[in-house]
Design a protein around this nucleic acid. Structure first.
Length: 878
RNA sequence: GCCCCUGUGGCGGAAUUGGUAGACGCGCCUGACUCAAAAUCAGGUACCGCAAGGUGUGCUGGUUCGAGUCCGGCCAGGGGCACCA
């Protein structure tokens, strides 16, 4: 056929994309109706923090969600695909300090800018449901739920450790602590206890753990991470009697929690958290101990800081008695690696079978006694020096436990200590412990949801009256000094006590921004309800989210908090289910090469030119030609300047190219490397599809379907339906990189067919070509919606392809009559046989043994065995 | 430190979930078109070897007729760690 593609104009994304975005908008096709009778599908991407500009991570995330939304829509489902803004948080306050902009102004300007960017991507979003968490129309409902949770017993107040900057007199986030010092002041950070509001997530530890098994459309990895985070362990509480002569004020006992009661006869020491009451009491009489505890407070509050710090301890002089031997005394230390939050804040140390304890005794010369003998070891020669043994074995050096397994010994110790009732209470009690701590939500910051509480000297803590909600953030705040602006505000916190009418003050802490993001998915179901956070009947229709998509970095905190919050909302009547997200997908990051100039400064990709390809690539500065060093591939970040601005890409290539490249190559759960060559490849494919569709449009053929199809037509139709089948399957399973590959294959097949067609193809072939063109456009529509519309119009259709149903699969076209089986001899491929699809095994065997390659490999001998795996492979065992 | 993940051509990756390793794309090579370039089109491209043939999925050992895939041990790279969102 004369492909007059030379005449075809290039596809002009810059002109086409806004045109179709306007057409979709005017047709209102992405507005979800709450009373649509079709089956619902709720697809949600994690909403962005309005930092000011979207980045490539957003492009990837929202493109994936959009493909799913458009696909489900083509499958005739009622799709909810909303977008909003996680708009409270620290960066807005930093901007206020650094640039003297009000957080509110900064945030809303950012939202406006980012919304425009998102709209240029051509996402099928229902913008009518947009919410911003910093808006009083959103956070008023959050305050209501806080009060509901309070009434339901889901809220408490507790002392919590925070990072305290003694120079700025302010609380620091972990990320604001750099090498143990405040990021602005440079002062040595110390731990300080603050009285804080917490949500009782730990009441749900067991439930949150068990329900993980029901989340079968979540990645195994995320479920495992949450399981470990909840950290259920079964152990024993043991009361050690103390030598009262050694205790500061006559304390008689110390309760510890252990998961290894079997190693009790290997005990060498006891250790207390630095803030354990017994440690505090002892420190009052021992200045050196007090100094040591003070030193421990300079350790950061992050788990990493605690674990990687050098293990240090201080002997309090207190002595404890071994529960099975009154004459066995153990020294009680204060140690910097014991946490008050976990168990009872005190442990006994068995160094032979715990690495941390072993490091500790080796440092303080306390020695160790192994009590678990690994299988096959000689008890007379088995010693522990630098490496603790935490494997299985049999008990030894342990009196009545000798010879038992670890499990038997744990049980025996528990059994004996439960019966021992010194002080009218059992010495030992079995206990299930969780690592999960209650969720501290108080933040000493301005830009967050105010906690609706009033403190009265007479009445204590009083909830703000419902009718006073929202407790609005005041606009007139200053950031000229460190600390919480709400605290410094001259009048805001002064209110009358709702109970006694006396003078009182507002809670000046605001809520953790994770609270804001723990229910936005429910708010999207009816964001117009002014009276309540949700309209339960509507929320219960839409929820749970069928497909949630976001970064793996949220695998634990955001997702676990949301699971808790949904349960709390159920308990307080705002929603009817336990789990918010039925399906979860965690996508990988967008990464890029890094570049440095001769002085070692990072350089943006936009400012350099790459010469050569493959291994000979060199880079130079576009402006001066200065050579640039090409560095490692890393997550796109401002600090390393290896970012590519989505706006630039959309301006030069169009949104469809950016979307297509994001979906290509890398599996969505893995990192994708952004490369200029890759983008250009995507762009070339956009142009190729446009030319191809142009060629199909030129084919003239019958409007009605022919009775029969010739072999050429049938070959193309098989390729089309194979692609249809594969793309449908892979979109459903979010394997977008495979969808892309299938579409390339199909485009290649269509291209070959057109190339082989005569100038005037037979009517059946012409029909097949046009049909294949239609299918192709409909298949790439979810990924490249603008190009699809343009192509759809070029093919002579009226109306929007975005509203056209997904093609119907003709399953018969997927079946082949013959199969080609690889033939192996001793596991090595030697040839292949083509047989009828339903050929019997003996028939296949005979064909295989007749092959020259097989005869040669067998060298005249007869095979020991022939393994025929139907429709797969044949293996001859010689 | 603890928990989790990943490792396949020059590169991103595919592999019907234990059955032909390298689909598809990028890059590169050759040719066509062009005064030339770009674009486009046709062909080639795991490695060693002229070939026959051999080798090959981070390393190492095992299970199996058969291992990229399952099991044990190691090595390397990455992510999370409760006040970043």
């Amino acid at each position: 056929m004369t492909a007059d593609s030379s005449k075809t104009e290039r596809y002009n994304a810059r002109a086409a994309e806004p045109k179709w975005q306007k057409a979709w908008d005017e047709a209102g096709i992405y507005a979800a109706k709450n009373d649509d009778p079709r089956p619902k599908y709720y697809v949600l991407e994690m909403f962005p923090y309005p930092s000011g500009r979207i980045h490539m991570g957003h492009v990837r995330n929202y493109t994936m969600g959009d493909v799913v939304a458009r696909f489900k829509s083509a499958m005739n489902m009622n799709v909810l695909h909303p977008m909003g803004w996680d708009a409270f948080g620290m960066p807005a306050e930093n901007a206020a300090i650094d640039r003297k902009v009000h957080p509110k102004e900064w945030t809303y300007a950012n939202i406006a800018a980012m919304k425009k960017q998102l709209q240029s991507m051509g996402l099928s979003l229902d913008w009518a449901r947009e919410v911003a968490t910093c808006d009083p129309s959103y956070y008023r409902h959050q305050q209501k739920m806080f009060l509901d949770f309070l009434k339901a017993g889901l809220v408490a107040r507790e002392y919590r450790k925070v990072n305290w900057d003694p120079v700025d007199n302010t609380v620091l986030a972990n990320e604001q602590v750099i090498d143990g010092r405040g990021w602005r002041s440079g002062a040595l950070v110390e731990q300080r206890d603050l009285y804080q509001w917490v949500f009782k997530i730990s009441d749900y530890s067991q439930e949150l753990l068990e329900a993980l098994d029901t989340l079968d459309r979540w990645p195994e990895k995320v479920r495992l991470m949450q399981k470990n985070w909840i950290g259920r362990s079964e152990g024993l509480l043991v009361r050690f009697m103390l030598d009262t002569a050694t205790t500061p004020s006559g304390e008689t006992e110390l309760e510890i929690f252990t998961t290894r009661p079997d190693t009790l006869f290997g005990a060498k020491f006891m250790a207390l958290a630095p803030d354990h009451p017994l440690a505090t009491a002892a420190a009052a009489k021992n200045p050196k101990l007090a100094a040591f505890i003070e030193e421990c407070k300079h350790l950061g509050t992050s788990q990493e800081a605690i674990d990687t710090a050098e293990k240090m301890g201080f002997d309090t002089g207190i002595r404890a008695t071994h529960p099975f031997d009154p004459s066995w005394k153990l020294p009680v230390y204060v140690a910097n690696f014991i946490l008050m939050d976990y168990g009872t804040g005190a442990i006994f140390g068995c160094p032979a079978h715990d690495q941390r304890d072993l490091d500790f005794v080796n440092k303080y010369g306390l020695g160790n006694t192994p009590v678990v003998l690994p299988p096959g070891q000689d008890p007379a020669t088995f010693v522990i020096t630098d490496t603790a043994y935490d494997g299985t074995g049999t008990l030894f050096n342990s009196r009545f436990l000798d010879g038992m397994t670890i499990e038997q010994a744990k049980d025996e110790v528990a059994r004996r200590l439960e019966k021992d009732t010194r002080g009218n209470r059992p010495v030992g009690a079995r206990q299930v412990n969780y690592r999960l701590r209650d969720w501290g939500i108080s933040r000493q910051r301005y830009w967050g949801c105010p906690i609706p509480i009033i403190h009265c000297d007479k009445c204590g803590v009083v909830p703000a009256p419902i009718e006073s909600l929202p407790v609005k953030l005041p606009d007139d705040v200053t950031f000229d000094r460190p600390g919480n602006p709400l605290d410094h505000h001259p009048t805001w916190k002064n209110v009358k006590c709702p109970t006694c009418d006396g003078p009182a003050r507002r809670e000046t802490d605001t809520m953790d921004t994770f609270v804001d993001s723990s229910w936005y998915f429910a708010r999207f179901t009816d964001p117009w309800n002014e009276k309540a956070p949700t309209t339960p009947a509507v929320a219960n229709e839409w929820m749970p989210v069928d497909q949630y998509i976001g970064g793996i970095e949220h695998a634990i905190l955001h997702l676990l908090y949301s699971r808790f919050f949904t349960r709390a909302m159920k308990k307080t009547g705002h929603i009817g289910m336990d789990e918010p997200f039925a399906g979860l997908f965690t996508q990988g990051m967008v990464v890029h090469e890094t570049y440095r100039d001769q002085a070692g400064n990072w350089v943006e990709p936009a400012n350099i030119t790459i010469d050569g390809m493959g291994e000979t690539r060199t880079a130079k500065l576009t402006t001066t030609g200065e050579p640039i060093e090409i560095g490692s591939i890393e997550k796109m970040s401002k600090s390393k300047k290896n970012t590519v601005d989505p706006d630039d890409i959309i301006a030069s290539y169009g949104a469809d190219t950016a979307r297509w490249f994001m979906l290509s190559d890398s599996p969505p759960e893995r990192d994708v490397i952004w490369t200029e060559e890759g983008v250009q490849g995507a762009w070339r494919f956009v142009q190729r599809l446009w030319r191809l569709v142009g060629e199909v449009a030129d084919v003239t053929g019958p409007q009605s379907r022919p009775e029969t199809f010739g072999p050429e037509a049938q070959k193309l139709r098989k390729a089309a339906h194979r692609a249809l089948n594969n793309v449908s399957e892979d979109i459903s399973r979010l394997r977008f990189n495979r969808c892309v590959a299938h579409l390339y294959e199909f485009a290649n097949a269509l291209s070959d067919s057109i190339g082989s067609a005569e100038t005037a193809p037979t009517p059946d072939f012409a029909f097949a070509l046009r049909e294949a063109g239609d299918i192709l456009v409909r298949l790439f529509q979810p990924m490249m919606p603008h190009l699809a519309e343009e192509c759809w119009a070029a093919l002579g259709h009226t109306g929007l392809v975005a509203t056209v149903p997904w093609p119907q699969l003709e399953a018969a076209l997927l079946v082949e009559n013959t199969v080609t089986l690889p033939v192996q001899v001793n596991g090595k491929k030697r040839g292949e046989v083509t047989v009828a699809r339903d050929a019997a095994n003996p028939e296949i065997e005979a064909a295989v043994l007749a092959l020259d390659e097989v005869k040669k490999a067998l060298d005249g001998k007869s095979p020991k065995k022939v393994i025929v795996v139907p429709q797969r492979i044949v293996n001859v065992v010689a």
